[in-house]
Design a protein around this nucleic acid. Sequence first.
DNA 1: TCCATGATTCTAGAAATATAGAAATATAAG
DNA 2: CTTATATTTCTATATTTCTAGAATCATGGA
Lengths: 104, 104
Amino acid sequence: MEQEAVVTALAALAQDSRLRVFRLLVTAGPDGLPAGQIAEELAIAANTLSFHLSHLKAAGLVTMRRTGRSLIYAAEYGRVQAVIAYLTENCCRRQSCCDGTDEP
Amino acid sequence: MEQEAVVTALAALAQDSRLRVFRLLVTAGPDGLPAGQIAEELAIAANTLSFHLSHLKAAGLVTMRRTGRSLIYAAEYGRVQAVIAYLTENCCRRQSCCDGTDEP
DNA sequence: TCCATGATTCTAGAAATATAGAAATATAAG
DNA sequence: CTTATATTTCTATATTTCTAGAATCATGGA
């Protein structure tokens, strides 16, 4: 994963409403939730939520599909895992490791 | 970890220069690096770097200590792990899990 | 004490972001 | 075809963030 994409993903999550949306979708699992239900559960105006969902989608953190009139959003869990991998990779190359032990 | 602190940490990492600084410090390990060396390695102006380091420090992602005239910064690895835990907790409560298996 | 070095703080302007109201789009149902 | 529902897009404004230059602070050595 490239740094630019990681920054975009982190920026997408670095906002109160979006982080709440993402975490709600994480608990919802692969089936996801329609935008309207997200808006209701989190008490966010529909247009504002749409703005935030577009951020999350652009960052690859959620997917969208249509079912009838509803647009269903679901967390793209693998994307977060890639971001996490980027953050933690190459830990302590110049020193012993920082996970508590003193082994290199 | 509380959501507000998580948002602060994510926002601190959601910027190109700061993410590069943090990753450099991760590779440097617990001994950290002096600000001047970070500035040199990443080609960031001293005052700009100081601005970014203060963000990372406020977010709890780095620690600072003085040695002579140098201020040594080191990655606070545990903080990132707490953020990661917050992002990934409560995965798929309403559905079967999203890690590949179909178990709840 | 005086000077050099390492780093931060202050200030200001440019750029990006968040929010809300109004209007528009897509789908479904009568 | 008309209406209702679900959601997005447009527009404008308020706020935050990033960057750079100048000034300041802290430490160590001559």
